[in-house]
Simulated scan of single mutants.
Amino acid sequence: AFYRLCRIVYSNHRWFQFYWLYVIAIPVQLVVAFIVLCPIMIWRDVTYLPNEYYCLPAFTQTRGILWGTLTAYGLPVLLLSLIYLRITIFIRQQPLNQTLRIKQRQQRDLAAIQRIFINVGLLLALGTPGAVLLIMCFITGIEHPLTYRIMWVGSAVAMAILSIQIIFMTPQLKNIITIRRQQNRVTTLRVTIPMRVIVTNQ
């Protein structure tokens, strides 16, 4: 999303078009994510779950759960929404006499942001059962025994759906797969026809 923002809104700033900026941004993003999640470790909210056999902030640790939820879901969705809003406002403020090439590029980048929104919405939707169980735990004080398993099932299903969805939502990838399928069909037909001829001659 940041790449699309720089490409559309700040296309005249050469510094934002620098290739190495985005190469450096990847490790910087990982470092920032690590720093943001450090408070959970400092607060010692990560505990061993005896029924699940792994470590995770327990739902009873309100501070750790809220911090993890806000940093993992709230902050990315907020930043993505602000970027999408900024790009939309910028495109609508553009003059009508723009070249067709620039308009097509902007619409393509905007469509990419919309696809990201769909993916994020899907992740949030599949995370709803876990959120409902979390709210119930806060209200009743009783933790459902299948809470963590339901939460991980939602994440696993989301990853599976996103893996398939990315094929249909990325035109370049979809074209590659379509071409490969057509080539395989042609190859199969070429192999099948001679076999039929041989059987007929016999």
Rank of each mutant, 00 (worst) to 15 (best):
A158V: 05
S163E: 07
P76Y: 07
L123R: 09
T128M: 11
I91K: 06
S81Y: 09
L173S: 01
Q93C: 09
G121T: 06
L96N: 13
N201Q: 13
L82E: 06
I198W: 10
N201P: 03
I26C: 05
I83Q: 05
L79T: 10
L189Q: 14
K103V: 12
Y22F: 09
T71S: 12
I26G: 05
R101E: 13
Y73K: 00
V28W: 14
R101T: 12
T178S: 10
K103S: 09
V36C: 07
L21Y: 03
R196F: 15
H144C: 04
Y53F: 11
I24K: 02
I83F: 06
P145R: 03
I198V: 15
T88D: 13
V77M: 08
V120A: 10
T178R: 10
I26S: 07
L56N: 07
Q183E: 14
L21V: 08
G64S: 12
I89G: 01
A158Q: 05
N119W: 14
I179C: 10
P50F: 05
I42M: 07
S155G: 11
L49H: 04
L100Q: 12
I35E: 07
R101W: 15
W43I: 00
L78S: 02
Q98S: 05
L133I: 05
C55Y: 15
A1V: 10
I193S: 04
I198E: 08
P194H: 05
Q93T: 08
S11A: 13
V191T: 13
Y48F: 15
T140M: 03
L133W: 06
R63F: 09
L79G: 08
R196I: 14
I142R: 08
R14D: 04
R4F: 09
G68H: 01
N184D: 13
I89Y: 12
L79P: 00
T147L: 09
H144E: 02
Y22A: 02
Q114W: 06
V31D: 05
S81P: 02
R44H: 15
F18T: 12
G130R: 07
I193M: 00
L30Q: 13
T187W: 12
L70C: 10
R149Q: 05
L82H: 04
I65W: 11
L5S: 06
I42E: 05
F138N: 06
T60I: 08
F117W: 10
G74L: 07
C6I: 02
L78M: 08
P27I: 04
I116A: 11
A112E: 14
L122P: 03
F16P: 02
N119A: 13
R181C: 10
E52I: 02
I142Y: 08
Y3C: 00
Y22I: 01
E143I: 06
G121W: 07
Q172H: 12
T170L: 00
Q106N: 14
T128R: 00
R149P: 02
N12K: 13
Q165T: 08
V191W: 14
V46T: 12
P57D: 02
P39F: 07
A72H: 09
I102W: 15
Y19G: 07
M169W: 13
N175Q: 15
Y22K: 00
G68W: 04
L70I: 15
